[in-house]
Deep mutational scan, measured.
Amino acid sequence: LSDEDFKAVFGMTRSAFANLPLWKQQNLKKEKGLF
Rank of each mutant, 00 (worst) to 15 (best):
N27S: 13
A8W: 03
L22P: 14
K24E: 12
A18H: 09
K29T: 04
K24P: 00
K32G: 08
L34N: 13
G33Q: 11
N27I: 04
L28Q: 02
E31Y: 02
W23S: 14
P21Q: 02
L22K: 02
Q25I: 08
P21S: 05
T13A: 09
F6G: 01
L28M: 07
A8V: 07
K29L: 10
K24H: 14
N19V: 07
K30I: 11
E4K: 15
K30N: 07
L22N: 13
K32M: 09
Q25K: 05
D3A: 12
V9M: 14
V9N: 14
L34K: 10
D3P: 15
D5K: 11
L1E: 11
L1V: 08
A18W: 03
L34W: 12
W23V: 12
K32T: 08
A16D: 12
K30M: 11
F17S: 02
D3S: 12
K30C: 10
K30V: 09
G33V: 05
K24L: 10
F10V: 07
N19K: 13
F35P: 15
F17L: 02
F6D: 04
G33W: 05
W23A: 15
W23Y: 15
L20I: 05
Q26G: 08
R14T: 05
N19F: 14
A16P: 01
D3M: 12
A8Y: 03
M12Q: 04
E31I: 06
N19D: 11
L1P: 13
K24I: 08
F10Q: 01
L28D: 00
V9A: 13
P21D: 02
L20Q: 06
M12F: 11
A8N: 12
L1W: 06
D5M: 12
E31A: 10
F6A: 03
F6E: 01
L34M: 10
A8H: 10
D3T: 12
L22D: 14
W23G: 11
V9Y: 07
K32N: 06
L22H: 14
S15Y: 05
P21A: 03
L1G: 08
P21E: 04
L20S: 02
L20H: 00
E31T: 07
F10P: 01
K30T: 09
E4Y: 15
S2K: 08
G33H: 07
S2L: 10
F10S: 04
A18I: 04
K32F: 03
N27L: 11
S2M: 15
D3R: 06
L28A: 06
L28P: 01
K30D: 09
L22M: 12
F10W: 06
D5R: 10
Q25C: 02
S2A: 08
G11P: 01
V9Q: 14
K7C: 07
E4T: 15
W23P: 12
S15W: 06
R14W: 02
W23F: 06
